[in-house]
């Protein structure tokens, strides 16, 4: 059993090594709020500001149930900014570091443009971005991050809630099955 455990630890380590690799500055150590109020604030900011250029295609409008599209068409955006602004529904899990990267990006703008045409950001590879500094307060950036995290993984809450009960159930079942096995082992092997 000890060797088995060691194998599993080794395996987890190997996967951990595989997950970590990127040459950007270390992401800020930030805890993303999960309370409904902050997420709602984030949603309001995203709908009022971000959605002008960014779509959130996997989220739906509460009334029409249509996917949330950006205020400007991708073609217009391409003409205006040179690129189509990325969809935001999965952005909080689609970058190395996850939601911490979203927050870092929103607050990582440099005043000195350097060689960049539109804006300089420490947390993007190459250092340049077509998105101009949204000049957000820390609270607003955090609220946006909280909302986008929820948008990217909307099932997290229910998953954890159900998961705990599944683990408790399996735990009891495993212990019971083990006790059964011990009795059978005693009977069969003496």
């Amino acid at each position: 059993m000890a060797v088995l455990g060691a194998t599993l630890v080794l395996f987890a380590g190997l996967v951990g090594v595989a997950a970590a690799s990127e040459e950007l500055p270390p992401l800020p150590d930030v805890s993303i709020p999960t309370d409904a109020e902050t997420i709602e604030l984030g949603e309001r900011i995203v709908m009022a500001r971000c959605k002008t250029c960014h779509s959130l295609q996997y989220l739906r409008d509460e009334e029409t149930l249509q996917p949330l599209l950006s205020g400007i068409t991708p073609d217009t955006a391409k003409k205006q900014f040179g690129v189509v602004p990325p969809d935001l529904s999965l952005i909080a899990i689609a970058r190395p570091g996850g939601a911490a990267h979203t927050y870092a990006f929103l607050t990582g703008y440099e005043n000195d443009l350097g060689d960049c045409e539109k804006a300089a950001n420490r947390f993007i590879s190459g250092g340049c971005t077509a998105m101009v500094d949204p000049r957000l307060s820390d609270e607003d950036a955090l609220a946006i991050t909280a909302f986008l995290k929820e948008a990217a993984d909307p099932n997290e809450k229910i998953r954890v809630q159900i998961g705990i009960w599944v683990e408790i159930f399996l735990g009891i079942l495993t212990v019971m099955a083990y006790l059964v096995y011990r009795r059978i082992k005693k009977r069969e092997l003496g």
Binding site: T174, V180, Y181, I184, K185
Partner: peptide
């Protein structure tokens, strides 16, 4: 039942 019980737990 020996192996089935072992496999189960």
């Amino acid at each position: 039942p020996l192996t089935t019980a072992k496999d189960a737990w």
